[in-house]
Simulated scan of single mutants.
Amino acid sequence: MYTVYGDYNSGNCYKIKLMLNLLGIEYRWVAVDILNGETQTPEFLAKNPNGKIPVLELEDGTCLWESNAILNFLADGSAYLPSEPRLRTQVLQWQFFEQYSHEPCIAVARFIQFYLGLPEERLAEYHAMQKAGYRALAVMEQQLKRTPFLVGETFSIADIALYAYTHVAYQGGFDLSPYPAIQQWLGRVAEQPGYIGMLD
C-alpha cells in the first residue's frame, strides 16, 4: 500500500489525495505539520532531502516527491494522462505553468492569509502575489473559454494540478467572480467520478 506524507490543507498534497481517489487506489495518510518543523526532521529528510510535502512512499520504500511528478507516476497508463505526444506535452505545459506562474502566487498568498493570518511583515509580498495570481487566472480563463478542460475535451492531471489551489484561491484573497469559465470548470472537476474534497 502507498503511504502519503502530507497536510490535508495543502493544495500540493491534495493533488495526490484526489488522484489516488479518482484511481480507486488505497493508501495510508501520515499527517505532517509543516508549521512545527516536521518536514525538517532527520527522519523526514531521509524521505525527501528537500524537506517538503507531499511525499509518496512506495511499498518497496522508494520515496517520490514533487506533487506534479507524483501525479505523472500515478496517472501513467490511465485516462488521466494522454499517451499521444502532443496532448501529453500539453499536460506537462500546464503542470509547468502551475509550478512557475500559478502556485508561487496563489498558493503563497493563501499561505500568508490562511496559514499565517496576514502578518504585517508579509503584507507587501501578499499584495505582489495578488497581482501575479490574477495574471495566472486570466491565462486559465482564456483556455477554459475555448475548451471544457485545460487539455481539450478530456479531464487530465493538468486539471488536477491547477484545480488544487484554484478552488481554494479565495482563502488567499482572490475573487473568482470575474472568471466564469474557471467557475464552470471547477464544477466540472468536482463532478468527476471518484472526486473527493480537500477535507473530505
Rank of each mutant, 00 (worst) to 15 (best):
G152W: 08
G152C: 06
G152F: 08
E153D: 13
F155I: 07
F155C: 08
S156I: 11
S156A: 12
S156K: 13
S156H: 13
I157P: 11
A158D: 02
A158Q: 05
D159M: 09
D159L: 09
D159G: 07
I160G: 12
I160C: 12
A161W: 09
A161R: 11
L162D: 15
L162Q: 14
L162T: 12
L162I: 10
Y163V: 08
Y163P: 11
Y163I: 07
A164G: 12
A164Y: 14
A164M: 10
A164F: 12
Y165E: 14
Y165D: 10
T166C: 07
H167A: 10
V168S: 08
V168I: 15
V168P: 03
V168Y: 04
V168H: 07
A169D: 09
A169M: 08
Y170K: 14
Y170L: 06
G172N: 14
G172A: 11
G172H: 14
G173I: 00
G173S: 05
G173R: 07
G173Q: 02
F174V: 00
F174I: 01
F174L: 01
F174A: 00
F174S: 00
D175A: 02
D175H: 02
L176R: 00
L176M: 04
L176I: 00
L176A: 04
L176N: 02
S177H: 11
S177T: 15
P178L: 05
P178T: 08
P178S: 10
P178C: 03
P178I: 01
Y179W: 06
Y179F: 15
Y179T: 02
P180K: 09
P180W: 05
P180S: 09
A181H: 13
A181R: 03
I182E: 05
I182M: 06
I182Y: 03
I182Q: 03
Q183P: 00
Q183H: 02
Q184S: 11
Q184W: 04
W185E: 09
W185K: 06
W185P: 05
L186E: 04
L186S: 05
L186V: 03
G187Y: 06
G187Q: 14
G187P: 02
R188F: 04
R188A: 13
V189I: 15
E191R: 15
E191S: 15
E191H: 12
Q192P: 08
Q192E: 11
Q192L: 09
Q192C: 04
Q192H: 14
Q192K: 15
G194T: 01
G194Y: 04
Y195N: 05
Y195C: 04
Y195H: 15
Y195R: 06
